[in-house]
Computed example of a mutant assay.
Amino acid sequence: MELLFVAVIVAALGLGIRYLVPGHETYGVLLLPAIATAVGMIVWVVLLWTGFTFDGGWIWVWSILASVLASVAVALVLPRRRKADDAQLRASLGI
């Protein structure tokens, strides 16, 4: 049940990050929430396997922190990469 809570929390944070970081017009609405959810859930399960308990605070901190960092990293890198690739495509097409 806690995994569902983690998924909802980090998906909401990913959606919020989408609108806080500039350049959100270069990718879809659900990309950052999906990345945040996947990373948060994977970190949660790995930490459970390593011995953290679901009622401990550190599993929440690390899961949420990892998902936020992954979302911010994608939100910062993707627009620059997308604009560079689009410029290269336009140049190759002669536009």
Rank of each mutant, 00 (worst) to 15 (best):
M1P: 09
E2N: 11
L3Y: 03
F5W: 15
F5V: 12
F5M: 13
V6L: 04
A7N: 01
V8N: 02
V10K: 05
V10N: 06
V10Q: 03
A11E: 04
A11I: 03
A12F: 09
A12V: 09
L13G: 00
G14P: 04
G14R: 04
L15G: 05
L15R: 01
G16V: 08
I17E: 04
I17H: 00
R18I: 02
R18K: 03
R18H: 05
Y19W: 08
L20Y: 11
P22Y: 07
P22K: 07
H24W: 12
E25N: 14
E25S: 15
T26I: 13
G28R: 08
V29R: 10
V29F: 15
L31D: 11
L31K: 08
L32V: 09
L32I: 14
L32H: 04
A34I: 08
A34F: 11
I35K: 03
I35Q: 03
T37L: 08
T37S: 06
T37N: 05
A38Q: 07
V39N: 00
V39I: 08
V39R: 02
V39E: 02
V39K: 01
G40C: 07
M41I: 13
M41W: 06
I42R: 04
W44R: 05
W44V: 03
W44D: 04
W44Y: 10
W44T: 02
V45G: 03
V46W: 06
V46G: 03
L47K: 06
L47R: 01
L47C: 06
L47M: 10
L48P: 01
L48D: 01
W49A: 14
W49V: 15
W49C: 11
W49G: 13
T50L: 15
T50D: 09
T50C: 11
G51F: 10
G51L: 07
G51T: 09
F54E: 10
F54M: 14
D55I: 12
D55M: 11
W58I: 09
I59Q: 01
W60D: 07
V61R: 07
V61F: 12
W62S: 07
W62F: 15
S63I: 01
I64P: 06
A66Q: 06
A66W: 02
V68E: 01
V68R: 05
A70D: 02
A70Y: 07
A70Q: 02
S71K: 00
V72S: 02
A73F: 15
A73Q: 11
A73R: 09
A73C: 13
V74Y: 05
V74R: 04
L76V: 14
L76W: 15
V77Y: 14
R80G: 13
R80M: 14
R80D: 14
R80E: 13
R81T: 15
R81I: 15
K83C: 06
K83M: 10
A84D: 13
A84Y: 15
D85Q: 13
Q88G: 14
R90G: 07
R90C: 09
R90E: 11
A91S: 11
A91F: 12
A91E: 11
S92T: 12
L93T: 10
G94N: 08
I95D: 02
